[in-house]
């Protein structure tokens, strides 16, 4: 029986059908793993009232690459769930910030490890967990904590997502993913946490089996759509200078 191909023609086809109101996980930590091309396609696709999950809404750096902040500016976002909801330097202002301050977008600021574990838990069928992180802080006010073995822990809930948008180094036609270096970051857990997993791939898509099973970081059974990133300027390939 022929294998149904997960490879789609272009970025627009890759994001087709994403519904208004979806919760979308955006992979990436700084440049590595950030799905700039799929995010650009989502800006064109126009789905509204999105809940956007990612490490950050996107920084104030220029030139800007497509990020959650641009979706906010485009009127597509109801809420963000991020570990950074303000600029690291007090003198900087995130593009997202004025929308947040005017109350046009909601935000949940989550410690990075809690964000990662909420995604992991969602993918692993664990509805909630206790963590020592954020105990005693403003984030824990009014929330359930519990003493376990003499230490106080904060209850956190899993964060299931409808869609994950990821960028990886290599993929095969079966959807198996291999990330490179720090590109892995949130990719595998966002894939686990999401019902529809869409990936932009840097290398040409390999025949099934070309990635040794021992080297697969995310198994293809979790991945639905793959799109190979064409060379610039047809697609976004950020340069080293952009985070300098």
């Amino acid at each position: 029986m022929a294998r149904r191909s997960k490879v789609v023609a272009d970025f627009d086809a890759a994001v087709a059908g994403i519904q208004d109101g979806s919760t979308i996980a955006f992979g990436g930590f700084a440049l590595p793993g950030s799905p700039f091309n799929l995010t650009a396609a989502l800006l064109r696709q126009g789905a509204k009232r999105l809940v956007c999950v990612g490490n950050t809404t996107g920084g104030p750096r220029k030139p800007r690459n497509p990020d959650i902040g641009m979706l906010v500016e485009n009127g597509q976002v109801a809420k963000v769930i991020c570990s950074f909801t303000a600029a690291p330097r007090a003198s900087d202002v995130l593009p997202f910030t004025p929308y947040y301050e005017r109350g046009e977008v909601d935000a949940e600021t989550v410690p990075q490890g809690t964000l990662a574990e909420r995604l992991r838990a969602a993918g692993a069928g664990i509805p909630a967990f206790y963590t020592p992180t954020a105990v005693g802080t403003e984030l824990a006010e009014g929330r359930e904590t519990r003493m376990i073995n003499g230490r106080e822990y904060l209850l956190e809930y899993a964060l299931p997502c409808d869609v994950a948008l990821l960028r990886c180094y290599q993929a095969d036609e079966a959807g198996n993913l291999r990330f490179r270096r720090a590109q892995r970051n949130f990719g595998p857990i966002m894939a686990m946490a999401s019902k529809l997993v869409i990936v932009e791939v840097e290398e040409p898509i390999l025949p099934a089996g070309a990635i040794d099973p021992d080297d697969v970081h995310t198994p293809g059974i979790l991945v639905h759509r793959l799109v190979h990133i064409p060379p610039a300027p047809a697609a976004i390939w950020p340069s080293l200078k952009e985070t300098r």
Partner: peptide, 8 residues
């Protein structure tokens, strides 16, 4: 600041 810079 309404938002935060928690990171890790």
């Amino acid at each position: 600041s309404k938002g935060g810079v928690i990171g890790g």
